[in-house]
Design a protein around this nucleic acid. Structure first.
Lengths: 250, 250
DNA sequence: ACCTGAACACCGTTCAAGT
DNA sequence: ACCTGAACACCGTTCAAGT
């Protein structure tokens, strides 16, 4: 804002910003190193950025550090290791799942919507679904989700044991489906080709050795991912109903 | 067998086996390099050995090669890469699942037993369950299993689409459960400690913020892995029944 | 308290070269 | 046809050292 080339300025006019001596700034703070002082949250965010851009296989501590313009060793002050980082990332993504006020009169629809929202959250961050398999993300957001689910089931009057165990099953189902979504588009970087490959491969199989398979091939491949997701979702909900009934009978 | 120190042997008696000149044998063929000429099957077997001994994280092309007394580069003649090797390993394990003659009169029990057998096969080879997630193991054994399942469903009179889609769901369920089995015992190398840790952690949570969770904690942890496996298995079978009914109604 | 560089002990994969 | 050694471009993690 201040004009330095006014007539009263002595000496020769100079419009250029005066260059700083190079040793005033470290070699890499300009674009790379954000001046924020490297918090755990910033590391998680950087991991999500790498994940979205390059996928899970490319997610290394070194890449995350590079994303922040920092040495890899620096991360270890804030995070105990890669395993810990992945847990934090997972919990961060779980935090994006909406948890509406439980309404026992329509608990089934709320669970359906919760499942869809969870799938959507995973779809936003490619690779996280795979990272979630075999990892219990005991973080604050995970706990909130469990609490939400259990209280919904409780208010809906479901028996305790089936309710508690169903949560695991649902999480598993959604995560596995999200993983399939990832595989289909992105992680193996061939969009819908894989289905076509499978279908044409099935077509080459000898029908006398694989009668049922070759006959069912259209059914196996039929339906959009969404259709299949909804089918499985409905299936496990009906199963839950049946198991709750059985429990009440005892 | 042949005694060389017999009296008629001329010269001084020599009981020591005559050492071969060192260049007669390459430096490493004695114990390491089996004289079998490195087939694809041998590589798969070596991978299973490493897997069982060290777990999935330690399964590297170099380790597998070392197991065979061979350079890592040699594997690439028989196998296109690590991804390919994992697919082969997976199909190999799937091959151990029994496929009894389909009996439509007791198809539900046959499916239940199939699920249990699949879990057992995974339990025999720690780490394979995790490797299976997100990988479609289109190998001969996988195809045989799919064929077996479809023909059983067909003979049982299940509608085609639910039958075809149910296979995926079941595979998913069993694999995810097997993965949990792995995590519980071995992969994270703490046997049943993890459950205790979780339970004591839950106990520290403030009941006013997590009323349902703290109240349900005993139910969440209750039951043996087998009980939980059977619960989920029964649940999805009941769900299948319901979905088949719905399909028949349309 | 927080971050660094350098090092350690590994990876998967390629490739010219050997037999 | 099958296997090798050496190299390339990476890994996760540790640790003494700096500020």
């Amino acid at each position: 804002m201040q004009r330095t080339d006014s007539p009263e300025t002595p000496g020769p006019p100079n419009r250029e910003p005066i260059p700083e001596p190079p040793w005033w700034s470290s070699p890499r703070d300009a674009a790379e190193r954000s001046r924020t002082p490297l918090t755990r949250d910033a590391i998680v965010e950087a991991a999500l950025a790498v994940l979205g851009r390059e996928g899970l296989d490319a997610l290394s501590m070194r890449q995350v550090a590079a994303e922040l313009g920092v040495g890899a060793a620096s991360l270890y002050w804030h995070v105990s290791g890669k395993e810990h980082l992945l847990t934090l990332v997972l919990d961060r993504v779980i935090g994006e799942i909406p948890r509406p006020e439980p309404d026992p009169t329509r608990w089934q629809e709320q669970i359906r919507q919760f499942a869809r929202d969870t799938r959507t959250a995973f779809q936003r961050y490619r690779g996280v679904a795979r990272a979630s398999m075999g990892r219990v993300p005991v973080g604050p957001n995970f706990l909130l989700v469990v609490e939400w689910q259990l209280s919904l089931f409780e208010q809906a009057g479901l028996p305790k044991r089936p309710a508690a165990w169903f949560g695991d099953l649902l999480a598993l189902y959604v995560a596995a489906h999200a993983l399939e979504d990832d595989v289909r588009a992105g992680e193996t970087d061939d969009p819908g080709e894989i289905a076509a490959m499978l279908e044409s491969y099935f077509a080459t199989l000898p029908p006398e050795r694989f009668p049922a398979l070759t006959a069912s091939a259209p059914n196996l491949m039929a339906g959009s991912p969404d259709d299949r997701f909804e089918f499985g979702l409905e299936l496990i909900l009906r199963g839950l109903e049946a198991m709750a009934e059985r429990e009440r009978a005892t």
